[in-house]
Amino acid sequence: MRRRSRRHRRHKNSGEAVQLNMAAMLDMAFQLLAFFVLTFRPSAIEGHLQVHMPPPIPLTNVNSEAPPDESGESGETLSGLETLDLYVTSNQNGDVADLKVGTFPVVQGQLHPAAVRRLNEHLKSLFEIEGILFDRVQIHADGRLRYDELMKIVDVCTQQTLSDGKPMQRVNFMELGNPVGTDGGN
């Protein structure tokens, strides 16, 4: 009994509340917190349109007809056999003024949502034609065209599906009025 009570007493003594010094830990935690608060940048709600710019193919295009004279290009473009050509002219502000697929005018005036839908339907119908296997789109654009207007066109192009079921990602760009040899010649 005595032994037990001694043990119990000893245990009781050693079991006294040990108080940790929290101040140092709190200091460190606040330092970490300050670092994270100061370096915090909310991630932007940002996305991408991924395009694949294929290497140059020096072949004469047989599917797309020569662009109209007012586009500023000669009829002798160098394109791949399976290239669909889009010709985009813009006004002074950089908005789309006119968009042709080959020689066919699809958009006249600004690229409003209705015009975007019309372009999408037109491209869809072209990509669905059997026997013509477009595998890339080449956008010939006016140098003044703004990036946001260009993105709308690229977006429509990348929404198309190829004959093998894969999404259309091969997009190339050229500037209207620039000789082919100076800007890459795709």
Binding site: A44, I45, E46, G47, H48, L49, Q50, V51, H52, M53, P54, P55, A141, G143, Y147, L150, M151, V154, F173, M174, E175, D183, G184
Partner: peptide, 21 residues
């Protein structure tokens, strides 16, 4: 934009991701 894309293409970068919100 085209100038920069052509430059990337010439250096071997063919995958281009155009950013938008």
């Amino acid at each position: 934009l085209l100038r920069i894309m052509r430059l990337c293409q010439a250096e071997g970068y063919r995958q281009i991701a155009l950013s938008a919100m």
